[in-house]
Every structure is written in C-alpha cells, then in structure tokens.
C-alpha cells in the first residue's frame, strides 16, 4: 500500500505535466470518428428529419412539420406503450441486476465445475431471439405448461401466464430476469478485475464475508454496476424481442405488452407511418438521454473510480 500511496503522490505532478492528449486522442478515436460520420450520423440525422415528414416507406417523404409529434400526444396507444415500458423498466432492471450480481458472486470461485455452471446459466440468454422461443415459453408459462403443472401439484390452479392480460407483463419481467446472463458475465469479469490482495488482506484482518462484500466488492465493482445499470436501462427502454415473440407481434393480449418499440415498429412497418415511428423514436431518445444524464450525474456520488 505504501508503494501505491507513494505513486499516488507523484500522480499530481504527472497530471500537471500533461496538458492534453489531443493528438493521441485523435489517433485512438480515428476509427470511431470515421464510423460516426459515415455510419452513425446519417441514420441519426435522417430519422430526425423523417420525424417531421409523412413517410410511408413506399413513397418519398413529405414535410408536415410537427404533425407527427402532436398526433403522438393525442394517441391513447402511445400512452399505453409508455405506461407498459416504464412499468417494465422500473421493475425489471433492478430485479435483473440484483439476480445477476447475486449469481455472479456465487459463480465467482471456490467450487468445482463453475465453468460449466456459468455456461449452463448463460444458455437461456442465447435463446433470446430464436424463432422457437414462443413455443418454448408456452411450454413453461402456458395454461397447461410447466409452471401450472407444478402449481397443480400443490393444488393451486394457475392461469395462462402469457395469454392473460393481467399477468402477461409480469411474466415478461420474470423472463427478463431469467435471461440475466449478459449482466452476470459482465459482473463476473468485473469481479475478476478486483485485485485478490485486497481480499487476502481483509481476511487476514478478520473481515467477515459480508464485510468483505460491502467494503471491497461493492465499492470496487461500482463502475461495472454503473455500466450495467446505464446500459440495461437503455436496453430495457428498447425492449422488443421478448414481447414481439410472446405476443405474436401484436403487443397483446390487449396491448398489455405493447412495448414502446413494439408500437413504433408496428407504426413504421405495418401502418407504413415511418414518420410517426421516427417521431416516437426521437421522443424516446430524449427520455432515455435524460435518464442517462441523471444517471451520470448521480454516479458522482456512488461510483468509485480509481482516477
């Protein structure tokens, strides 16, 4: 530790010497910048432009000003989509992160065959977009599926978990937790980044498991927790595949799983109102960007960086 503290003292001096790394940054960022200009920027700008047009995809777009935006705010299904999406984001993101972190801790080390368990637990996440998945869900959550068979064993009569308007969204949230594989892997990688000597030292000092978790794991993992939070949030707002597959693309039963992007997709590709869909997309961008900004501001108070 003394060594590190010593180095830390010299850090200030080093930082002063370095006024800026513009040249190096330009080099390191060159591919990204080319990509931004050539690949990313055009669709971004184009979709913004399209949000002010009447665009059927089949014909050239025509400028209609703010009409899409005003139409959006008097569309009851738009608000239904917002409601569904916010409910989903607020419940499932924290749940999934908690499950992923807990499992990452269990699967981190200290047991034979962990590599195998990790792979097995990751498998469901691999299935996410497969065409077969709707059928598979029915086997588990259908009126005659696995869940209800188990419940029936205990004398409880189940419902159609994905086909009943009151339960479908909740079931989707559970499905999302079930595919916690990706954040789990990122947590695992993060855990591996924590120098073992911290734990060794803490053990020697007699710190218990819980204390080690609170005082070493969590603080040193905060950048990764933060990353997962930000990206799961961005991702959850754009949730599409699960609902699309489970509801056969309709957002049903009766719009109970009408996710924002599902509605947007429906507008763009089956109602041929790509202008409206683009307006929805940009509204979403503003919302998500706002939440992400808040997230970044808040991160100053709880995320612990080494720099």
């Amino acid at each position: 530790m003394a060594v590190i503290q010593e180095v830390a003292r010299t850090r200030g001096a080093a930082r002063e010497r370095r006024k800026g790394d513009g040249k190096a940054a330009a080099l390191f960022l060159a591919p990204w910048f080319v990509g931004l200009v050539l690949v990313t920027a055009f669709p971004l700008v184009a979709s913004l432009y399209l949000s002010f047009t009447d665009y059927s995809l089949l014909e050239a777009p025509g400028w209609i000003g703010l009409e899409n935006y005003t139409a959006m705010f008097s569309d009851p299904r738009f608000f239904q989509a917002l409601k569904v999406t916010f409910t989903y984001v607020l419940v499932s993101v924290p749940l999934q992160l908690a499950a992923a972190l807990a499992l990452a801790m269990v699967l981190d080390k200290g047991l034979r065959g962990l590599a195998f368990y990790r792979s097995v637990y990751y498998l469901p996440s691999l299935l996410g977009g497969s065409v077969a998945i709707a059928i598979l869900w029915r086997q588990v959550f259908g009126a005659d599926g696995l869940v209800n068979q188990v419940l029936g064993f205990f004398g409880i009569e189940g419902v159609g978990w994905v086909s009943h308007p009151d339960y479908a969204l909740g079931t989707l949230m559970i499905l999302n937790v079930w595919t916690f594989g990706a954040p789990m892997i990122i947590f695992l990688a993060g855990l591996r980044q924590i120098p073992a000597m911290y734990y060794e030292a803490a053990s020697i000092d007699g710190a218990g498991r819980w204390r080690r978790f609170r005082s070493i794991t969590v603080p040193l993992l905060t950048p990764i927790i933060f990353f997962n939070l930000v990206l799961q949030l961005i991702g959850a707002f754009q949730s599409f595949t699960q609902a699309f597959i489970v509801s056969g693309g309709t957002g049903g039963p009766v719009d109970s799983t009408l996710f924002y992007t599902l509605y947007l997709y429906e507008k763009g590709f089956s109602s041929y109102q790509m202008g409206y869909a683009s307006a929805m997309a940009w509204f979403l961008l503003l919302v998500v960007a706002g939440m992400t900004a808040v997230n970044f501001l808040a991160s100053k108070f709880w995320v612990f960086y080494d720099d």
Partner: peptide, 16 residues
C-alpha cells in the same frame, strides 16, 4: 376453451 387457452391456441399455428 377459456379465454387464456384461446389466445394461446391462436398463437400456435396449425401444428399447435
């Protein structure tokens, strides 16, 4: 069938 099952059968195509 009841409503839930009807929705499920509707999504299952000819085979299901």
């Amino acid at each position: 069938p009841d409503a839930s099952r009807s929705v499920e059968y509707q999504n299952a195509g000819p085979e299901g």
